[in-house]
Design a protein around this nucleic acid. Structure first.
Lengths: 247, 247
DNA sequence: CTGGTCATGTGGTATAGACCACGATTCTAG
DNA sequence: CTAGAATCGTGGTCTATACCACATGACCAG
């Protein structure tokens, strides 16, 4: 285990510094899988910090799954969960996900206008019946190949300015962050298997009756307001979802 | 906010007691969405506990998303995420999930024997080629209706005793815990959409060519050893997956 | 060699106190 | 009345210390 350093001059909390260094050493393989890290008291003393501070750092990595505490034995490195599973935590937009996989995302815009919301969508958005919404329907491509059909609805009152932008080029989440200072914070997803209807199959360039994954998502900002309701249909032959889960 | 209680006679840690009570009050709606809870110092003093202990409790609920800390302002209730989404965190066996939904799980055992593992399964289990595995294939029912076909493989060397039990009645995870002291700790899941082949469709009592969700799972214990490789096929018309995600 | 006993060391929990940064509030000078 | 200054209160961080339960390994009696 390489020597860790504490910098008391920065604003960065000590426990975050330690956590970052430990994380780096684990991910770089300097700390090997199954290896015991030094006891908390010893490690804290050698760093000149309190044991409680060190524990805060270790806690972080335990939550991330990189370390596992074994009561009365020690704390071991658990890097089982390497980089294989990318879409682990949090959630991502199509653009973000494709970039993470090393693919180039793009879009073909099918619909981009404001409309009267159907009652179900309005309810999901937390809007009154008859409210205006932005309807953005895009075929999403990765390296030029159709992967999914994504239909998003956003409250018009809040995001009407969005209609000025080119959603074929820009990422929706990027635009929301840049132009509105809005960041997705939580979402609720429903995943089901469907058969492709003819229009969707055509847009994706596959056969009618092929299977597909349908992911419905309600996205909220930090304050809990719904910012987007989205339904994406993924080609089953090109897309699968991978999760890493703990309990 | 209802008065909280601390019991210093139980083995249950104080911070967990407080966390459980706060969680209950939020979920019961006694603490309303957006409401500020009392300042940490004040609440800790009124409970006769240290501020750090109270913070440990609050930390738990913050991680669960039930509370949100706002620096220099206070801590607010954020119960957007009500109980609607059950299958949120961690992962569950079929039995556990159905019970949580208020349905009665049962099984029809199709295969339950030891076999030579095919190479791919052996690799996933971390066993050498040609190793013995237990093959457990069951039709899973909820309230008597077929919901899924689940095929599990477990290392024979470790779990051979399992073959003595009745897997039509018992939950696999329950047995692993009770008889082997083994608890699933992490898993990696892959979700895809497929079309049902004739044999699977027949077992589920649906039509060939219907869509289905296929969930492949590699489950590990606390020490990172693979304990089970499982592939479950769910009827699309009766099953969807729901996730709550944060980022 | 065997079985039990006991000391040691580990993470788990709890405490009381301290200082910081900064938003909100109150006070004060003009 | 207003603008700026001072204060207060909040969560965020850090410290030093204490005790607990129990896994482990050393030790000892037989």
């Amino acid at each position: 285990m390489t020597r860790l350093k504490v910098d008391r001059t920065t604003a960065d909390p000590i426990f975050k510094q330690i956590a970052a260094q430990l994380r780096g050493q684990i991910q770089a393989g300097q700390l090997r899988n199954g290896e015991l890290i030094p006891p908390e008291r010893e490690l804290a003393a050698s760093l000149g910090i309190s044991r409680m501070t060190l524990r805060a750092a270790v806690d972080e990595l335990v939550r991330e799954g990189l370390l596992v505490r074994q009561s009365r034995r020690g704390t071991v490195v658990s890097a089982v969960r390497v980089r294989k599973t990318a879409s682990i935590e949090g959630f991502m937009s199509f653009s973000e996900e494709m970039r993470l996989r090393g693919l180039k995302p793009s879009s073909r815009v099918m619909t981009f206008s404001d409309q009267i919301a159907d009652p179900a969508t309005a309810a999901q958005l937390g809007l009154p019946v008859g409210a205006h919404v932005i309807d953005l329907t895009r075929v999403r491509l990765a390296n030029g190949e159709p992967m999914a059909i994504e239909r998003s609805h956003l409250p018009y009152a809040r995001f009407s300015r969005l209609l000025r932008f080119d959603l074929a080029r820009d990422s929706l989440y990027d635009l929301l962050a840049r132009e509105f200072g809005t960041r997705p914070s939580t979402c609720e997803e429903t995943i089901e298997a469907i058969l492709l209807a003819s229009s969707d199959a055509e847009a994706l360039g596959v056969t009618v009756g092929d299977p597909a994954l349908m992911v419905s998502r309600v996205t909220r900002d930090e304050r809990g307001s719904v910012i987007e309701v989205e339904r994406t249909i993924f080609r089953a032959d090109r897309y699968r979802m991978v999760f890493f889960r703990r309990r």
